[in-house]
Amino acid sequence: MKNRSWAFLAGGLLVALLLAGVVSNYASSHPDGLDSSLLKGCTVDADDNIVGGSCPAQQAREHELGDSPLADYGVRGVENGFLSTGLSGVLGVLLTFAVGAGGFWLLRRRGATSTPSDTATPVEGGSPTDADAATSGDARRRAGAAG
């Protein structure tokens, strides 16, 4: 991979780490669309605990791995809530990236056919034979806009 790709990858990861590690602490703690829909029919208190009525959410059972050290997006043993959420977010981003990138790397197509020939199919008259894919991408977009 070229340097620019590494820079993009590093920049993207940094953004994801900041979002999951810091911004996540300012996320709304209200139930999401699914949970709130399943709470319909029940009455809840200020902390969104069910206090009465009957609704689908009451059937919810324990998670199989509810005692995982990172369960509920916190790190067990870290008392500080801000730190706990942030740290779990950082670990989650790194883990997801490792699993995703690692898995996709193993699955990627290899060998002589791995030239980007099918992704850089020249438009009529265009011949993006230059190695810089970004430039050829631009050229294709311009050609597309013109055509």
Partner: peptide, 27 residues
């Protein structure tokens, strides 16, 4: 696999990591 080449594979990993991060941000 037809889409996954040397360049797309790490980017796809980044997309997954980014989605994980943004899913934490309940608005």
């Amino acid at each position: 696999r037809r889409d996954l080449d040397d360049r797309l594979a790490p980017m796809a990993g980044l997309v997954a990591a980014f989605i994980f991060a943004v899913q934490m941000l309940n608005f």
